[in-house]
Computed example of a mutant assay.
Amino acid sequence: MKLDEVQTHLSKVEAIFLDQMKNTASFRLKESMEYSFLAGGKRIRPLLLLSLYADLTGKIEDKAITVATALEMIHTYSLIHDDLPAMDNDDYRRGQYSNHKQFDEATAILAGDALLTDAFVVLAKSPIDSALKIRLVEELASTAGSNGMVAGQMEDMLGEEKHLSLQELQKIHREKTGRLFVFACQAAAQLADKDDYLAQKLGEHLGIAFQIRDDILDVTASFESLGKTIGKDAATEKSTYVQCFGLEGAKEKLKEQIQEAKETLAQLTNERGATWEIIERIEKVN
């Protein structure tokens, strides 16, 4: 299955989200949640889950779309909170005002809280075998929580204005960025009833590659192409792959991770389908 065909299913991700929003008791909270979730963006994490599932099974089913929706809700919550003044303090996201700039700080915090919590409602209602559903709930909670993304954000903030070692930098990125990529790949394999070890390795390589790409684009891209403030890493004296290796060195590190990802994918499936196209998209930084 090709990537453009998989992308058509992203409208179903939005439909599942909007169906969940029907139960929201506060109109302002609903408005704030929809503002950030429906802003679009690359949707790389749900797209990766659906693409790998399609490559492994030859189809896309509702159970995979539901898990992809829960994953994107958690990712959107993380963006809202990352942009807050107490954290990365960014005014723009996905080409529009950050949630706290469009509404207010308290509303943005609550919208993020609700997206995180409601993601597990969506996952709990998914048409998945109970044993696998419990496993996915546990893995997604671990991915997002104190052993994953939240811990990575904490360490990222503590690392500002410090010169971190490569090992420290990689640990932050594995937790803050990489864990959602790992979950996307592992969930796809588990839903397809395939061994998820190689899927985990694929997610690890893609998570690192995506972060290196993001570091490069923070230096080279425009606001129009990226949809958020450019040069934030340098302004906050944050350690990045570009800061550690220089621009060309970071590009070489990106190539290494992309090659590892391609080799791992080849062990999972002979299909050069949608997942392969995603890898090639991450590879491009020009």
Rank of each mutant, 00 (worst) to 15 (best):
Q190A: 03
A188V: 00
G178L: 01
G227D: 07
K228P: 11
L202P: 02
K171P: 01
S239Y: 00
R179M: 07
H173E: 10
A199G: 02
Y197V: 12
Q200V: 00
D196L: 00
G227C: 08
A235H: 11
D196G: 02
H173V: 08
Q200C: 10
D193L: 03
H205N: 12
A187G: 03
Q190C: 01
I208T: 11
E175P: 00
A221K: 11
I208F: 10
Q170Y: 04
A209L: 12
A189R: 03
L217I: 04
S239V: 08
H173G: 05
K201I: 08
V182M: 08
T229Q: 13
G227T: 02
I172T: 03
T229A: 15
G203N: 13
K232N: 14
L180I: 10
K201Y: 06
T240Q: 10
Q186R: 05
K238S: 11
T177N: 11
A189T: 00
L206Q: 13
L166H: 09
A209T: 04
C185L: 05
L202W: 07
D195I: 09
C185G: 00
Q167M: 02
K171V: 02
S165C: 07
S225H: 12
T177R: 07
Q190H: 09
Q200F: 04
D233K: 14
T220R: 13
D218S: 07
K176V: 10
E237F: 13
A199S: 03
G203D: 10
I208S: 02
S222D: 11
G227Y: 14
I216S: 05
D233S: 15
F181Y: 14
I216N: 04
D218A: 01
S239E: 10
Q186Y: 01
I230V: 15
S225Y: 10
Q190F: 02
A235E: 07
E204M: 12
L166I: 11
H205D: 14
L166K: 14
L169P: 06
E175M: 11
F210K: 03
G207W: 09
D195R: 10
V182P: 04
A221L: 02
F210R: 07
E224N: 13
V182N: 01
K194A: 04
A199P: 01
Q211N: 04
E175V: 07
S165D: 05
F181N: 08
S222E: 01
D233Q: 12
